[in-house]
Amino acid sequence: MEFVTIGSATHAGMKRQENQDYHAWHSPEDGSKKGILLALADGMGGRYGGSTASKIAVDVLIETYYKDMSHSISESLEKAFQKANEEVNARGRTDINLAGMASTLTAVVLKPDGMHYAHVGDSRGYIIYKNEIRQFTADHSFVADLIKAGQITEEEAETHPEKNIITRAIGLESELRVDAPAEPQTIKKDQYILLCCDGLHGVVSNEGIMSTVYEYKDPELICEKLVEKANEHGGPDNITVVIARVDRIGLMSRIMNLVR
């Protein structure tokens, strides 16, 4: 039996014809060394390339991650992100129909003893536990940097005309800086890990997300309900949600949680 229950949902939203988001997860049969990898990508750009970019990003990520022989999970994630970036860039250079495509990419590796993540762009990862919701990824966006630079407040960012400009993504440049912390995060029983694109987090509030989680409890059902909610709010963009609920944890995590 898996130690997590995973669910997901995706929808083009009410305004877009094409869904350029992509997501996937992989749970290797040969045990837990590399863990379960969840990935979500929000594609954009190119003549027809947005959906291609997100698919390449996720596929290359998963393939490279499980092939990589690095000792640490964060190193493997970093390498897999770089490979995904190379691939999307290369495809954009050879096919004019794909030129200019790019994608956000957010990935989580879950193991019974903790979790790792890697991330570029403005999709988000949240941890929901005991009626608290916490974003563990940092947005690589123009407004997030303006806040850090002390130029605007978080409130001002919400209505900023340029709030959708991102500053890092797979496929934008040959050089990519990836957030991939070496330190694992502890996990707890009954904790939810939620990945989503801005079609959800820009539309449904954190409180709305959390109340849906506790109302429906089952990851698959929560994801469907969150997509519905986003569409009820106008569904301005593609919506994708991936949720993992931790059903049991390893001995290490139990000890660590006691210590903390």
């Binding site: 954009m44 750009g45 495509m101 940097d145 303006l146 130029q151 991102i166 500053t167 993504a169 934008l172």
Partner: peptide, 21 residues
């Protein structure tokens, strides 16, 4: 329009007034 925009802004050469809409 500013729907999910694939706009990469290189801020190295951007004047300060650009940060105030």
């Amino acid at each position: 329009s500013h729907d999910t925009a694939a706009k990469m802004l290189s801020v190295h050469y951007v004047p300060p007034e650009r940060f105030d809409p």
